[in-house]
């Protein structure tokens, strides 16, 4: 238990020591998105009755920050440790692969939520969103962050170079988040794209998260919860098996 807590603490201290890059920078990026898209589209698009476009956009941007930063935290920590070789410091001690996994994922969730909270607070200067169900907000932020933290573990272990990690991020994570309904309600899409969106687990994370704020969503939150929960179980199982075998870590 002490080993797990220490690894978690170290992973959190790592991003906190460079919080200018790991927290402040992504908050600023999201606020820029909010100002630009909000300004251009406000009044032209009304996704739900009584919900302004800017208000609609905020939960999407918050969740996108949670997801991207959770992924960035575990994946960049692991690949840096592998490339510099200091990964041996966590491979030599008697840390079980489950503790290893939990510590990296939990630290990723914390980073995601800290950034997400930062985005939400900054956005509150422009529009204060309602908060219909705090439970769903926290639930989807945690589950989404955990999925991305676990995917970050997989990517960080698999990638041998920074460009491989960047490819994973640019060709998989970015398109899936961008096309998940951060900027629009899928009901505004043509039927083909609507059904395609339903194959994207990220869509359910963002839709469920948004439900927590407005109490309305495209999909019943319990359905989203089930989809996201199953996705988390699958990703967790996959990365635990990778770690158990020592894939690319213990040759």
């Amino acid at each position: 238990m002490i080993a797990f807590r220490t690894l978690l603490y170290k992973e959190m201290l790592r991003f906190w020591k460079v919080s200018f890059q790991t927290v402040a920078a992504p908050v600023l990026t999201s606020v820029l998105y909010l100002m630009i898209f909000g300004h251009v589209l406000e009044g032209r698009v009304q996704p739900y009755p009584g919900v302004s476009y800017t208000a609609f956009l905020i939960p999407g941007l918050v969740m996108m920050s949670v997801l991207q930063n959770a992924f960035a935290n575990s994946s960049s920590s692991l690949i840096q440790s592998k490339i510099t070789g200091n990964i041996v410091f966590v491979l030599l001690p008697p840390i079980s692969y489950r503790e290893f996994f939990s510590a990296y994922v939990l630290a990723a969730v914390v980073r995601g939520i800290v950034v997400g909270l930062g985005v939400w607070l900054a956005a509150a200067f422009f529009v204060l969103t309602p908060l219909a169900h705090l439970f769903w907000v926290l639930c989807f932020a945690t589950l989404g962050g955990a999925i991305m933290g676990a995917l970050g573990v997989v990517a960080g272990i698999w990638a041998e170079k920074f460009d491989q990690l960047a490819a994973f991020q640019n060709f998989l994570i970015m398109p899936l988040t961008m096309l998940s309904g951060v900027f629009y309600s899928i009901h505004s899409l043509p039927p083909f794209w609507q059904s395609l969106s339903r194959l994207n687990p990220f869509f359910f994370m963002i839709d469920g998260f948004r439900y927590g704020f407005f109490g309305v969503s495209d999909i019943n939150p319990w359905v989203s919860f089930a989809v996201v929960g199953i996705a988390l179980i699958l990703v967790t199982g996959f990365s635990l098996e990778m770690l158990r075998r020592g894939y690319k870590l213990r040759y």
Binding site: M1, I2, A3, R5, T6, L7, Y9, K10, L13, R14, K17, V18, S81, T84, G85, N86, V88, F89, V90, P93, P94, I95
Partner: peptide, 24 residues
């Protein structure tokens, strides 16, 4: 280890405390 590896984020004492923690 043979390779001269280190963790650039931490001070010597922080690193040693963390390493001790890994061993419980």
């Amino acid at each position: 280890p043979q390779e001269l590896v280190f963790d650039p984020f931490f001070s010597v004492r922080e690193l040693l405390r963390i390493q001790a923690g890994y061993f419980g």
